[in-house]
Design a protein around this nucleic acid. Sequence first.
DNA 1: CGCCCCGATGACAACGTTGTCTGGTTCCGG
DNA 2: CCGGAACCAGACAACGTTGTCATCGGGGCG
Lengths: 327, 327
Amino acid sequence: MSDVARLAGVSIKTVSRVVNDEAGVHPATAERVLAAIERLGFRRNLSARNLRRGSSTGTLGVILEDVGNPFYSVLTRAVEEVARTQGRQVLTGSSDEDPGRERELALEFCARRVDGLIVVPAGMQHGYLVPEMQAGMPVVFVDRPAGDVVADTVLVDNIGGTADAVKHLAAQGHQRIAFFGDAPDIFTASERLRGFREGCARSGVRYGEDLVFMGPHTEAGVAELLERALGGPEPATAVVSGNNRITVHMLRALYGRPARPALVGFDDFELADLLNPPISVVQHDASMLGRAAAELLFARLEGDSSPPRRVVLPTRLVARGSGEVHP
Amino acid sequence: MSDVARLAGVSIKTVSRVVNDEAGVHPATAERVLAAIERLGFRRNLSARNLRRGSSTGTLGVILEDVGNPFYSVLTRAVEEVARTQGRQVLTGSSDEDPGRERELALEFCARRVDGLIVVPAGMQHGYLVPEMQAGMPVVFVDRPAGDVVADTVLVDNIGGTADAVKHLAAQGHQRIAFFGDAPDIFTASERLRGFREGCARSGVRYGEDLVFMGPHTEAGVAELLERALGGPEPATAVVSGNNRITVHMLRALYGRPARPALVGFDDFELADLLNPPISVVQHDASMLGRAAAELLFARLEGDSSPPRRVVLPTRLVARGSGEVHP
DNA sequence: CGCCCCGATGACAACGTTGTCTGGTTCCGG
DNA sequence: CCGGAACCAGACAACGTTGTCATCGGGGCG
């Protein structure tokens, strides 16, 4: 900036005035300054500007499990979209479900003075965020609630969605329904299991521990447990899958098998409608999750200080016909 | 920081020494300072630190078409992974193929003094980056080359990949092969078309303008053109699709049709192997693209000043059997 | 002609840090 | 008992900006 000032024969303050479009600069002077800026390729340093003005940094931190996962990347995109209307940039970080990593990222973002944090919690301990939140950093948790702080949270209706899946299957006569889910210490997994159980109760389906399988996360693991669910004296005739990774593993395990159980998966995925048979799913909108979270965050930034809110977004059962396939 | 200093009864410099783990602070003093930091929830301001030290901001800018697109989100993840080993954070922005938006994002990132830029070009004019690059900002272009600057670029072998697809189809006896691609002003689209043409020449397949369809980007558009390709006196018996969006549109258009043309798609996609018939694809690795770009960038940051490089990553034809389905 | 006001510009401090240098103890060896 | 190292701690400036206030002409008005 001082280089520009020297070249234009003015003081740096005048340069500042020009780059900020402040009134009260003689057009001819402004001309000279602009020419100097152009010639030197000057670009003002936003960090210094924000430091001096005490204004926000214009950035948002987003912490999630894996940016590479389509579900989260769509969420990120939605956040970015909202941030853009506010002229803000988005910093992302993947925690890989590691609470330590999540914490590290969050504190790093705080040190960068992001205006707010959107977090898909990896662990159950978020006490480390308390000082930041007290200092005024708005934090919104998405997809799962925080462990031990009260804060704005956006969730999907895991229980209702899974119960709907059971209802859908029961309506088609299935009485032996298996459930495959993530490890039960993951919030969404235990909620969906609860929804499964409630759905069974509501739809008059006998619920049995022997048909609940939590935690397999490899294709081989899913295949093995599936074998167990479909064997035995009273085999399952239908399966509810707790998330799209498991659904896909399951599809591979079932591929080429003559008689397949009916299958309803939580989470939609591309091409589900083109498979044979098409897969029914409990659909929920990652994009809407992201938008809701971002909007909640911006409301806080604009001074909303009402008590923390918990938003639960609905799910939608998309029946694609797989349910009708009886073994 | 001055609050901490006051509470601990020391000068702010001593606080600085403690937070930076500098030697020469009495253990008892350090103890007091740490207690004060803890009590006040102090977190040092990284912007101010970087400003004062003149060091890098520890951030990278990534500009691509759409973070929500699985291809780019995997790329982003790979960049993040490399950045992490260097203790750097990633700022992302989606250009939506709008050159103006790309420029806006790039300049904004530069004003934030990111350490480097990874760009999937939206347009063909990148002259606006010249001053930044001269000022030492390393820029790596990914997936498509820059319009009018020479810089490091990472591409995939669009021509070879598409030619392979033609070869694969020709080897199975197809003589009438159609090509569906993006609008020809998109670099990858025109390259793949060129690969298609070269593949035809090399494999002895007659190339005809009447079987080339560039630019459809809706399902209806693809369906209509497909109708044309598969009708007429000399219908196509096989189709090469220029990217995975088109492949998916095509699959929907073909769904339920009794006789389907053989299909090879550029870009792999999840579940391609579970469709009936499974879809053969020209596979290329978004993750590798991202990693290569990030590594190139970091090499520049470490002072590598060799002439700009152009890296072309290979593609791999994954034959899944769709090619063998003759109409 | 003198006064005041206004338009244009600059000097200086401050944002939150850290590098440099200096001041003040303490402790050791001579 | 003194010189000087070793150790601690603070004062001050600077990073690149911008807010505040002061300065300096010139023109309009009484």
